[in-house]
Amino acid sequence: MSVQATRPILEIDCLSVRYGSVPAVRELSLTVAAGEVVAIVGPNGAGKTTVLSAVMRMVAWSAGDVRLDGESLRKRSSDEVARRGIALVPEGRQIFADLTVHENLRLGMVARRSRTGAAEALDAVFEQFPIVKTFLDRPAGLLSGGQQQQLAIARAIVAEPDVLLLDEPSLGLAPTVIDTVFAALAAIRESGRTIVLVEQRAQRAIAFADRTYVLADGVVRDRLVAADATDAERLRAAYFGADTRAVAGAGTPTGGTPKVGTPADDPVRR
């Protein structure tokens, strides 16, 4: 995955966020290049969701900056961020349960930057998520969890954003549904969109992403690449904060198959 060649599209620069007196994110810096898939993993309360909310200006920053295509988002409100080309698939889907599937998609289009091509964008979404087309006039609240997740992603991409932020898209879904979601994400990546993926299911996210940041207590504890997804010791070290270089240097996993090797299992959940 060649990353170095491309320009940075999203830069988070020394960002701090606090809830009251509790720091949630502390001087966090990370860069995402155009077309790249970056995952953010880490234990509960590490500040993953806060990072995405901060980029969307849904929570206030206490210090630092976020730049989209070199332009600071400091003075922007949430709706302006959306209309500048960042779309969020929020944690827990957050689709509008009372509104129909179609109305949810229409809301997704509010942030579109070009006046033309809305119909094509909608068709593309229908092709990618047939379920959305099937239930177009149904109240979104009646959809199953997996269908709602697909709708939430569809709602984000009809805006044709440059950067797609996904917060825990696999949360609460059955394994087969998770496969569908990741297949959809793979297709979105093919279309050239930049993706920032926050996940509890670390292994799957790491394997999917070009690069991964491991967050703990609001700071970046480690960086990983896709190949690390199968390296159990490396993962464990990244999560629990052992001397990562030493572990990486040792190279030989000992003592049988570690638990983290099971697919869809999270080292933090043991």
């Binding site: 709706d79 959306a82 969020l88 957050q94 509104l99 809301l107």
Partner: peptide
């Protein structure tokens, strides 16, 4: 109407509506 839809969405969840680009 679009504005009507945005009003309903805002009434239902203001934060999410704005994150989708709805101008408060």
């Amino acid at each position: 109407t679009d504005l009507g839809l945005q009003m309903r969405a805002t009434a239902s969840d203001e934060r999410i509506a704005q994150a989708l680009g709805v101008r408060a």
